[in-house]
Design a protein around this nucleic acid. Sequence first.
DNA 1: AACGAAGGTGAGGCGCCTCTCAGGTTACGG
DNA 2: CCGTAACCTGAGAGGCGCCTCACCTTCGTT
Lengths: 203, 203
Amino acid sequence: MRKDAVHNRERLLRAARSLFADRGLDVPLEEIARTAGVSIGTLYNRFPTRQALVEAVFEDRTATVARLAEEALTADDAWEGFVAFLTGVCELQAADLGYNDVAVRGAAGGDPAGGYSLMRRIVDRAHASGQLRADVTLEDMAFVTWGIAATVRATFRVAPGAWRRHLALTLDGLRASSASQTRPLPAPPLTREQTALLMPECG
Amino acid sequence: MRKDAVHNRERLLRAARSLFADRGLDVPLEEIARTAGVSIGTLYNRFPTRQALVEAVFEDRTATVARLAEEALTADDAWEGFVAFLTGVCELQAADLGYNDVAVRGAAGGDPAGGYSLMRRIVDRAHASGQLRADVTLEDMAFVTWGIAATVRATFRVAPGAWRRHLALTLDGLRASSASQTRPLPAPPLTREQTALLMPECG
DNA sequence: AACGAAGGTGAGGCGCCTCTCAGGTTACGG
DNA sequence: CCGTAACCTGAGAGGCGCCTCACCTTCGTT
């Protein structure tokens, strides 16, 4: 690739990163090109589809999630690791409206550097320590993601940080002590296949 | 109003109700008119803005919510009433993608027939019975709404009913027994003003 | 029956966004 | 320094959805 092409690619990524973060994934491509100081044609040269641009912009996030997961596994307490991981992921969503969209729409593509199997280990460890309720599965983590993402979107202008309250309430519902002993949960967990369909990046 | 106008108005409402339910609030107005067998001009005659149409379509829902709230207040057990109310509201969202949008975007306009003060009574009653955790407020109900709505949207094609599992987990987090005694929640509840801003129909 | 007002119609203007392509420009190996 | 392949450009075609308005039809009243 010629070096001016590389240069333009980077300018486009910088512009897209910033606009996606502020306004979500639906920013007009023309605006991204203009912000990057490049023509719309160049944008299409570098990124033939919007999807390609989105994937390039959020490529680093998958590594970040993997790092969060690894840190969580080294936490002294399994539950604290579990909480730290989910908090970290939600912080990413709160800091970047574009990534928030990615999380909700499953638009990232590609497995997050083995994030899925790391997450499984976090969940297993929290189960083993007896602090995560036994009837909760890895697939239920999607509920946390979707729920907190929605609260972030609803409140980020008016009450940034409010999602932390929602997350705390959600996490309390996942503690072993919160299980409603009387009756089982009213629906089965999502299957692995369903999760793969809904969040391709976790397949 | 002339009777052909009334007739067309009803055809438009029927078409909009059906399309909104299946595809959400962003259906093209032209398509609604076409489905109703009426011209786009007529749609604009009856409903000068999209907002007006949406409000007319979902007018009945506010009464439904009020009815749910009243039923909840007559339940033998305060907690069961509380759960029944939230379940009912979520069922409305799960049954109609348009109403789901309304709930998330706060696009309904108008107080739901005093639904807000009824909800307050449901929450107060659940507090009084000692079953709803004390550090949860009426405003926190918005988290439930947003969260379940998001899960409904994500799963309704692939796993309809999965939201019930999410709701059950969420509700378990709201039980008094789930309060993490050690530390307070990490963020204050939304203020009444913030809630009014975010969900105008609850102002 | 006749008339005025209310209502219906749909082509077309507008704005927004996506995507293409013919023509001009630049990098870089030889 | 030259030639060519890679690259950049931006006008414009095309699609979509919103909304208006001049013209015609129908209702309902007298």
